[in-house]
Design a protein around this nucleic acid. Sequence first.
DNA 1: TGCAAATATAAGGATACGGTAATTCAGCAG
DNA 2: CTGCTGAATTACCGTATCCTTATATTTGCA
Lengths: 117, 117
Amino acid sequence: MTNKTPKTLGKDTLSLVAERFKVLSDPLRLQILQELRQGERSVNEIVEATGAAQANVSRHLQILARARIVDRRKQGLHVFYRVADPTVLDLCAVVCNGLEESLARDLDSVRGNPDTP
Amino acid sequence: MTNKTPKTLGKDTLSLVAERFKVLSDPLRLQILQELRQGERSVNEIVEATGAAQANVSRHLQILARARIVDRRKQGLHVFYRVADPTVLDLCAVVCNGLEESLARDLDSVRGNPDTP
DNA sequence: TGCAAATATAAGGATACGGTAATTCAGCAG
DNA sequence: CTGCTGAATTACCGTATCCTTATATTTGCA
């Protein structure tokens, strides 16, 4: 039932898409997501894993939560976060692969490989 | 040969990924890409299609070009741009579908559908 | 040569963003 | 109730981003 045909989007929709990309456009947020990809984590665990300041981690977690990309679960003193929207991991993977290919091309061209202009 | 196993990325790599997302995090740039999705376009055509100022369009095109997302071809007075990295279109499509589903869920929950909390 | 059109660049101001430090809030132990 | 720990919030600063206006550059043509 999902529409596969590429249609033209209105400016408001494009703004929503842009906003989603913007949430993913921060290295620390990506690092947090990468950590959460391995499973649920408390704020403290994320702080230790990333090496970032607690306030900073908390703020970025709020941003991710408001975007519905992560979910929170409170248990006693700790708050646990987990990935709520797995599609963002796919997005990162796609970008990563593209990056890898691009760098490989650059490397080839540096080496003087004529097949990759 | 491409590694399908999700590995842990370094901070520098995450910065590159974040940078790529940042390029896609602007509505006007997405609008431009959407226009270019239909084929090669001159700057003027893009200006008319988007309704944005010429200087603004030009600046955003530079940003997209520097990110290797679009390519330019000069012909006489005109400069034609085209999508150089089709994967960004996939990214947009993924976000779009996710957005659509999310909104559909919200709509259901507003309607009181108990299956979609 | 000189003008006009298409594109790019520069400078300016408003806004948003990210990081840090300090404060506050919530839950648990004594 | 008091004190302690984990987490969230606030205030502040420096920087980056975006848009607009104005100017520069390039190219085609009279």
